[in-house]
C-alpha cells in the first residue's frame, strides 16, 4: 500500500505557546506589508500595472488574439466572400452570416458573393482565432482590441459596419481578384 504516514511535527514549547511562531508570522506579514506599501507609494519599483491608468497595449505581441474583425483589401473591396467557413468552425457559434449576391453591374461582379449581414456575438466569442485560421480569403482577423464592453447585449452584437470599422484596411497576400495576380 502506498500509504504515507505523515508524522505530526513535534513542537518546542515556545512554538506551541505561540511565541516564536507568532514572531515568525509577524515578520512575514510585516515584510510583505512593507514591500507592497513601498511599491504603492512609488518608493520601489512595481511589478504590476494599475490597469485603467496604465496599459500594456504597446507591448502586445503580434500574435495577440483580441476581438475578431473584417477587413477590406487595398482597393476597399470587402474581402469576405461569405463562404461561411468561419461560421461553421466557430466553436461557440458566435458568427452568423447571411450571404448576399453581388449584382452583375458591380465592378467586382466576378467575386459573386459578399455577406449581406455578418454578425459576431461578442458575448459568445472566445477569441480562439479559428475563424482567422480557416478563412481562405484572409478576410477576418483577430485585432488587438480586448476591452469589448457595452451596456446591453445588443451593443455587444458586432454587425458588419462595426466589424469593418474595427478591422479597417489590410493589404494582404490574396491577389486572386485583382490585377496583380
Amino acid at each position: 500500500m502506498a500509504t504515507i504516514f505523515v508524522k505530526r511535527p513535534k513542537l518546542a514549547w515556545h512554538e506551541s505557546w505561540f511565541i516564536s511562531t507568532f514572531a515568525k508570522g509577524l515578520k512575514i506579514t510585516l515584510g510583505h506589508a512593507l514591500k507592497t506599501f513601498l511599491e504603492i507609494t512609488g518608493k520601489k519599483e512595481k511589478v504590476t500595472m494599475e490597469y485603467p491608468e496604465q496599459k500594456w497595449d504597446d507591448n502586445l505581441p503580434e500574435y495577440y488574439r483580441g476581438a475578431p474583425a473584417l477587413v477590406t483589401d487595398e482597393q476597399d473591396r470587402e474581402r469576405c466572400v461569405s463562404c461561411q467557413l468561419c461560421e461553421f468552425i466557430c466553436p461557440p457559434k458566435a458568427i452568423r452570416i447571411t450571404p448576399g449576391e453581388i449584382p452583375s453591374d458591380d465592378p467586382w461582379a466576378k467575386v459573386e458573393k459578399r455577406p449581406k449581414e455578418f454578425d459576431i456575438d461578442m458575448t459568445r466569442c472566445i477569441y480562439c482565432g479559428m475563424c482567422e485560421e480557416v478563412c481562405p480569403e484572409q478576410a477576418i482577423y483577430l485585432r488587438k482590441d480586448y476591452a469589448i464592453t457595452g451596456e446591453s447585449r445588443a451593443e455587444l452584437m458586432h454587425d458588419k459596419a462595426k466589424l469593418y470599422q474595427i478591422g479597417g484596411k489590410r493589404i494582404g497576400l490574396v491577389n486572386k481578384w485583382n490585377e496583380l495576380k
Binding site: 506579514t29 510583505h32 506589508a33 512593507l34 514591500k35 507592497t36 506599501f37 504603492i40 494599475e50
Partner: peptide, 13 residues
C-alpha cells in the same frame, strides 16, 4: 488597505 498590502494587493486605492 493594510490587509491588502499584507497580501501583496493594492486595496481600495
Amino acid at each position: 488597505r493594510f490587509s491588502a498590502v499584507i497580501q501583496d494587493r493594492v486595496g481600495p486605492n
